[in-house]
Design a protein around this nucleic acid. Sequence first.
RNA 1: GGGCCCGUGGCUUAGCCAGGAUAUAGCACCGGGCUUCUAACCCGGGGGUCGCGGGUUCGAAUCCCGCCGGGCCCGCCA
Length: 608
Amino acid sequence: MISEFFWLYFLQTRPRTQCLYHHIQLLNKHIIHTGVPMFLDFMSEVEGLLHAALERCGYKVEEGVNNLGLELSPHADLASSVAFRLAPVLKKSPVAIAREIHQALGQNFSYVQKVELSGPYLNFFMSRKFLDRVIQQALADNAWTGRMNERVIVEHTSANPDGPLHVGHIRNSVIGDTLVRILRRAGCTVDAQYYVNDMGRQEAMVVVGCDHFQLDGSKADHAVAKVYIAANRLMETNPEIRDEADQVIQRYEAGDDETVAKIQSAIKYAIGGIEGTLHRMNIRHDSYHWESEFVRKGDVSEILGQLEKTGLTEYEEGAFQLDLTSYGFEKKMVLKRANGTSLYITRDLAYHRWKSLNSDRSVDVLGADHKLVSGQLCTALRLLGVREPEVVIFEFVSLPTGSMSTRKGKFISADELLDEVEKQAYEEVKVRRPEESEAFLKVVAAQVATGAVRYDVVKVSPDKATTFDWKQALDFEKLSAPFIQYSHARACSILRKGEDLCKAETSQEGQNDPAQADMLIGENEIALIKKIAQFDLVIDRAARELKPHQLATYARELAESFNHFYRYSPVLDAEPRLRQARLALARAARNALRTTLETLGIDALETM
RNA sequence: GGGCCCGUGGCUUAGCCAGGAUAUAGCACCGGGCUUCUAACCCGGGGGUCGCGGGUUCGAAUCCCGCCGGGCCCGCCA
């Protein structure tokens, strides 16, 4: 019975030497299916070989992350720089140590073909057997799924229902939804949640706005925004609007029927519009949770009571506050207003406690402006003895003219962006496929647009602040979704023609030769198989570290590998047995591309 | 003023947390490749003090300290 399992990770892929590390997991439920040879298994074998060799030499490496110095390298499938680590301790040259370890490695290889000594480095190479099994795995009907088995709640988007999503919100939505997909691929059961801010001032302003202005016939979320912006403008000259909003907040918290009805219908109306936009981007939430739920159920007052017991609370000018100065927060956290109504942070505390109790992991995707408040929230949760969420922070998206604001009507909506990108995509498809029907052009344009928008967002690390740029958004030339979608479409095209060819020959000659994977010896073929093999590592690492952009990078590399294969290894013109082998690889690559695209939430077009 | 994040060829960007062998790509620029499975592709070329200065180390884009520049935050808003 295995009680421990080494999770192996690696950073990136291509040329430069990259760091790998492992992480000991103590829970059986995390064990990866060992019958599915992917990169993790190759790496596992390398680790075992190295540990055994080190033991034979009588060498000990210190416990620690990546203590074997494993890394992806342009010189090998996996390289170890462990000799460098041992040199200061053993007072020998790294080259001599590497030589000793190399001699002690033995020959009990399965997925390892050979180990080459290169100065102080030990270079491990994959065996034919491993490569063949990778193809078999990729050819299987079911896409690869990991064994994480955790129940995860991912909260993302959660935009106030006071207007449409804008280009800043979609960074949240795309990162969040991609994480949901990555976690599911890794084997988790994921509940994607939208937290609805129904008790805040913003929503009260929408209701006040609806009392003074008419919702027009535009898309629901846009109509709501107009009313909301108008109400805010009105407040500048008529300060009593603020009092009206305050009264709405108080009546709603008190449960006044008429106010409840007004707020809820306004929210449902706005959310309907927001959902429409999300659906265009292949994003769906599994459940919606309203902050008022947690007030009405009594969770909020229960939490206030528990926090009072910590002895860190106090009343200041009638407001109930939590003093977190000893935890490094200089400002006190106000839990209840002097007028008795609750605040966002208090309701959020209740929501987070509920999430923690109903999941193994909970993930929040939040903009950089929430950093401080989510730090306070986590500290308060710790005081309550509740597991903290894992918070994924993304830096701001601003406009060339400054930051966006729904209230001021200063934003570029997601709908506007999608419309423009789709228009551009339509022109591109029309040039390339003039013979196709209008319906075809429209479908392809829409799917290319969705992909282009999602990929543009997800390819950049969340901690880079960005400035929205139309020119860049509409330029989906190379480093973008269409590049990957196109590779997939090419693979599909080969497979379609290959099938026809096989049918014709089968009817003529009776029998096809079975595919011979070991005929795939071209440099580009091997490279493609190796790239396919890395999928499990990318998913595993992205799921654990919550870094979706790593999958975006992998997708580009996979497509690139396929394009090289496409260019240098003719499939249909090859002699029958080789053709079979290459068709199998094309199918394996098609499956890998499709799975990767699906995990990114990008449509895998079969033709474009 | 304090806290967090970012700074990599003209522009955008990977790698950084877990330091290792020639620093990743794209755009733009120069040149080449469609009678051959979809050229939304492929190949070659030029272009880099990895913000600056110290330190740690056999070895630093990566770790530590200081500085400079940019973003975000510091509400009885969310």
